[in-house]
Amino acid sequence: MIIYPAIDIKGGRAVRLLQGRADQETVYATDPAEVAKTFQATGSPWVHVVDLDGAFAGSPQNLARVEAIAQTGMQVQLGGGMRDRETIERALGLGVSRVVIGTRAAESAEFVAEMVQAFGEKIAVGIDAKDGQVAVKGWVDTTGVGAIDLAKRMDAIGVQTIIYTDIGTDGMLTGPNFAAQEEMADAVSATIIASGGVSRREDVIGLAEIEKRRPNLGGVIVGKALYEKRVELSDLLAIAKT
């Protein structure tokens, strides 16, 4: 299982939002690349980056910051405003390893299929759910589409990685929705990266236990718990290797 330490960028700064609400923001660093370097020094090969301004605006707003992170040599998984081919190509051209399509995936399976055909494993789909229903546009709108149904459609067109975020737990430090993550892993063959709610090392251990039953639960994104020092990245990386 891969640990993905997270950097959310808003206004050029590394922040965390509570349940994705723009008015519930905590600033943790003014230079996201410096945060990435601390993750890299700890031994993490990957970093999960979200351009929050891009998610709300519909197109990336912090690509200079993203490029600086990519220049550290880390593998960057980027989401936020990835809604057309030109934007995706631009991000990959900056050194991003994997682009996460969220809102557009809920709107057009055809678009995702085209991107998978063009870029293969460099394309991931982000499914953000509230009460099992897909939310889009920075979690502002809910769609009425079931998260599992969308995941199955994405799996069928060849998406290899799905990032599944339970909005109800994101940023709350209350623990992941283990049942929802296992249900998602059981429903598809794509690799599932769990996101939302990790607050302690036992949460990662719990997800690792699910991985034993569902080997395609291949990763977990950890954000606020790292910034508030509730967990140590080195410890989580060690757990993930066992």
Results as ranks from 00 to 15, higher is better:
Asp51Phe: 03
Lys10His: 14
Gly197Ala: 12
Ile193Arg: 01
Thr142Gln: 15
Arg153Leu: 12
Glu114Thr: 00
Leu18Gly: 05
Asp203Thr: 10
Arg153Gly: 03
Ser199Pro: 04
Ala22Trp: 08
Val50Ser: 05
Leu150Gly: 06
Arg65Ser: 12
Val125Trp: 00
Ser189Cys: 09
Gly175Trp: 06
Arg200Gly: 09
Ala180Asn: 03
Arg230Glu: 10
Leu78Asp: 01
Ala135Lys: 09
Leu94Ala: 06
Glu121Phe: 12
Ile127Trp: 02
Val66Ile: 15
Gln40Met: 14
Gly11Asn: 14
Tyr28Ile: 08
Val35Met: 06
Asp23Phe: 08
Leu17Thr: 11
Thr169Asp: 04
Arg90Gly: 10
Phe56His: 11
Arg85Phe: 00
Gly223Phe: 05
Gln71Tyr: 03
Gly12Met: 09
Gly219Lys: 01
Asp141Glu: 14
Asp31Val: 14
Val222Ile: 15
Gly175Lys: 07
Glu107Phe: 05
Thr103Tyr: 01
Glu228Lys: 10
Gly80Trp: 06
Arg153Thr: 13
Ala147Arg: 04
Tyr28Ala: 11
Glu86Phe: 05
Lys229Ala: 15
Phe111Ile: 04
Ser199Phe: 09
Gln181Tyr: 00
Ala129Phe: 02
Leu17Gly: 03
Tyr164Gly: 11
Val220Trp: 01
Asp131Phe: 06
Gly144Ala: 13
Gly206Tyr: 05
Glu89Gly: 07
Gln75Glu: 08
Asp235Ala: 14
Gly218Ala: 14
Val198Asp: 06
Val220Asp: 01
Leu92Ala: 02
Leu150Cys: 10
Met115His: 01
Thr72Ala: 12
Ile239Ser: 03
Leu173Lys: 13
Leu236Ala: 13
Gln61Ala: 12
Lys10Ser: 12
Ala57Trp: 00
Ala240Gly: 15
Val35Arg: 02
Ala240Pro: 07
Gly197Lys: 06
Arg83Val: 01
Ile2Ala: 06
Thr161Met: 10
Gly73Pro: 04
Gly79Lys: 00
Ser195His: 03
Val140Gln: 15
Val76Cys: 10
Ile101Glu: 00
Phe178Trp: 11
Gly132Lys: 08
Gly158Thr: 03
Leu18Ile: 08
Leu217Gly: 10
Ala179Lys: 15
Ala187Glu: 07
Ala238Arg: 15
Thr38Met: 06
Ala55Pro: 02
Pro45Leu: 11
Gly11Glu: 13
Tyr28Ser: 11
Ile221Lys: 07
Asp141Ile: 13
Pro176Cys: 05
Val159Pro: 00
Val47Gln: 02
Ala225Ser: 14
Phe111Trp: 09
Gly138Thr: 07
Ser195Asn: 12
Gln61Asn: 01
Leu94Pro: 04
Leu207Arg: 08
Gly79His: 01
Lys152Arg: 15
Val50Trp: 02
Ala147His: 08
Glu228Ile: 10
Leu226Thr: 05
Leu18Phe: 13
Leu52Gly: 07
Arg200Glu: 12
Ile148His: 01
Val35Ile: 15
Val222Cys: 09
Pro176Ile: 07
Ser44Glu: 00
Asp155Met: 14
Thr191Lys: 14
Gln71Ala: 15
